[in-house]
Design a protein around this nucleic acid. Structure first.
Length: 352
DNA sequence: AATCCGGGGGT
DNA sequence: ACCCCAGGATT
């Protein structure tokens, strides 16, 4: 168990971090301009499990289409998922939308001002709530994102994987201990900048780090050993056959997935567990059907398994009536629908 | 307390 | 091929 720092150590730590921030901190990120609770919330949500460079264009499009929480709350869910297409972790988008509606209906469009109240909203946890309070309101609140985890785990040589409860509890205690009463916004931004630019996962630049003098991992000569990696297990492989049904006018049949779970709420090609199951479905289709064209399978890897996708392209002479959840979609048109990355990829190929 | 949820960029 | 990233919800 890591011992808590003394008051003197805390002051040294904060001064070193803030002095460094004044000289080297980042000030030009899109979400640092006009730091409202809404913009901080959207950016923090996008940045969960997603890197800054990837997020920037998504953030720009999203805040242009939805400048305030009111436009977001008023939008159909498909519009929100559409702007999230390719970002992954689509539950984030659904929670964002639900949360916007709650903020508008319950709080008249103004975000709550305490960590506790914020963390009760869908999609906002302890860290994101702390980010909104400290960054948008400049009031004291700790965050514990990947950057802060890395800085603190190294500074105190905290053992264990941060996904373990005991390790997370230690890191949170340290994050709270160092969180200052003044310059809350600058401190939070400084810790994220430190983790993102110097205290990086590999090849940390300890030579320029303001905390190196008292960093235990640095003194051990092995900063990269902290935080400890997640214990890995091998991923199972799952084959799937996707039916790419296309009309003479190029439109394709897409099916809306259930609202929760993998790719929840997104539109996908009809999927089958085997080629035989897909062929059986073809026989049930009304109208003339071309011979199936079996495309080269490709792999889409998730956190926990490999999905081996076997696309089967079939041309259909005329559209048949479809269920409520199904739609005929023009692949070239960027319709307001949420699509998973492999679906977007195949639709692009179908326009050629 | 452990598991689930995407996709991309770096090495 | 493998690493993991500005986490939160669900079980």
């Amino acid at each position: 168990m890591t011992e808590q720092p003394t008051a003197t150590q805390i002051q040294q730590f904060q001064r070193a971090v803030l002095d460094w921030y004044d000289r080297h901190g980042r000030t030009n990120l899109p979400w640092q301009q006009e730091q409202t609770p809404y913009r901080v919330w959207v950016s923090e949500t996008m940045l969960q499990q997603t890197q800054v460079a990837t997020v920037i264009p998504y953030f720009q499009r999203f805040t242009t289409r939805f400048p305030t929480v009111h436009e977001l709350a008023a939008a159909p869910e498909d519009d929100v998922l559409h702007l999230w297409t390719g970002l992954g972790y689509y539950a984030r988008a659904r929670n964002l939308h639900r949360c916007a509606r709650e903020v508008v209906s319950r709080f008249d469009g103004s975000f709550p001002t305490t960590v506790e109240a914020l963390a009760e909203l869908p999609g906002i946890g302890r860290s994101t709530a702390g980010a909104i309070v400290s960054l948008a309101q400049d009031r004291p609140a700790a965050i514990l994102d990947g950057n802060v985890k890395r800085v603190l785990a190294r500074y105190h040589a905290v053992s264990g994987w941060p996904g373990r409860t005991a390790t997370a509890r230690e890191l949170w205690a340290l994050a709270e201990a160092y969180s200052p009463a003044q310059r809350c916004r600058d401190y939070t931004q400084a810790m994220m900048d430190l983790g993102a630019t110097l205290c990086t996962r590999r090849n940390p630049d300890c030579g320029h780090c303001p905390l190196a003098a008292d960093c235990r991992a640095h003194h051990l000569g092995a900063p990269e050993r902290y935080p400890e990696p997640k214990p890995k297990k091998q991923k199972p492989e799952k084959p799937t056959w996707w039916l790419l049904l296309q009309l003479p006018d190029q439109r394709c049949l897409l099916h809306r997935r259930p609202p929760s779970g993998l790719w929840g709420g997104l539109y996908c090609f009809p999927e089958f567990d085997s080629a035989e199951a897909l062929q059986q479905r073809l026989q049930e289709l009304p109208g003339a059907v071309s011979a199936p064209d079996y495309w080269l399978p490709f792999r889409h890897t998730f956190t926990h398994f490999h999905l081996d996708i076997h696309p089967v392209h079939v041309r259909l002479s005329s559209p048949h009536s479809v269920q409520e959840r199904d739609r005929w979609v023009q692949p070239a048109l960027d319709e307001a629908l949420g699509l998973a990355a492999p679906t977007r990829l195949l639709l692009d190929k179908l326009t050629l």
